[in-house]
């Protein structure tokens, strides 16, 4: 057998190590980018009649219901998802030129707003939202657990801005069972807004409800990752 030079052997070893390193790097990078750009299954608003549709959502203090397969730390992140199918999360689709009714079961306690602007209901029909059946235009900023804030992307031809603060559940609220998990009895918040022509928007929460529920880390984790407290709304025919 022909004897190979030591440089050749070292080159082979280095190439193998480098190859593994590159593959590992690509896998890690893909995992990271997938986490950042995670797009869950699309939740379509249910058409309830000509020109009307309903979007049923929930907000939870953790991800045991909405992201049951996740590990640490995501399993402890606050999150939005569909009230009817937890696999449908934060990518929503609503029909154009429609009166959309949004119903949110809000299971989380209050964290408080850092910007009072979001304590007022804005952009809804009548400028009001129903909180457990009671119409309100504004809540105490300290009582907000999350916000539902939908905003226009740059250069959009159909501006749309809807912002509704979500009232936190009281500490002494009785518990209820959701998919085998125990949560406080939710506040039910509903409101309506009108869509225009087909377009794409983003939505997210303006309460710093992330990692430590305060400044500055309250804006990290679920607040900086699509699929939890941020997502997209597409106005499209279906």
């Amino acid at each position: 057998m022909k004897r190979q030079s030591s440089g050749f052997v070292i080159g082979i070893i280095v190439s193998i190590v480098l190859g593994f390193g590159i593959v590992a790097g690509i896998v890690l990078a893909l995992r990271s980018s997938t986490a950042l750009g995670y797009e869950p299954q699309v939740l379509q608003a249910q058409k309830t009649g000509p020109g009307t549709a309903t979007l049923n959502l929930s907000t939870f203090p953790d991800s045991h219901v909405c992201h049951a397969s996740e590990g640490e730390p995501q399993i402890n992140w606050v999150t939005y998802c569909s009230s009817t199918d937890a696999s449908q999360g934060t990518t929503w689709e609503v029909p154009p030129n429609t009166l959309v009714t949004v119903i949110i079961n809000q299971y989380d306690s209050a964290s408080g707003l850092v910007n009072d602007y979001f304590s007022q209901v804005r952009g809804t029909v009548g400028g009001v939202a129903m909180y457990n059946g009671r119409p309100m235009t504004k809540i105490n900023p300290d009582d907000a657990a999350h916000t539902f804030t939908l905003q226009t992307t740059p250069d959009s031809a159909n501006p749309l801005f809807v912002s509704v603060p979500l009232l936190g559940v009281p500490d002494n609220a009785p518990n209820v069972d959701v998919n085998g998990q125990s949560y406080p009895k939710p506040n039910v918040i509903s409101f309506q807004f009108r869509t225009g022509a087909a377009d794409t928007y983003v939505w997210h929460c303006y309460v710093p409800c992330g990692s430590d529920r305060g400044i500055p880390y309250g804006f990290s984790g679920p607040m900086s990752t699509t699929g939890y407290m941020a997502g997209t709304v597409t106005v499209a025919n279906y």
């Binding site: 850092v114 602007y117 952009g123 804030t149 226009t152 501006p159």
Partner: peptide
């Protein structure tokens, strides 16, 4: 003008009012 991830909000103190949207 108040910046917050990820929008600007505008308050007009002389009129006691905020802009309702991204305007």
């Amino acid at each position: 003008v108040t910046g917050q991830q990820w929008t600007w909000t505008f308050y007009y103190p002389q009129y006691g009012v905020s802009s309702q949207g991204q305007v």
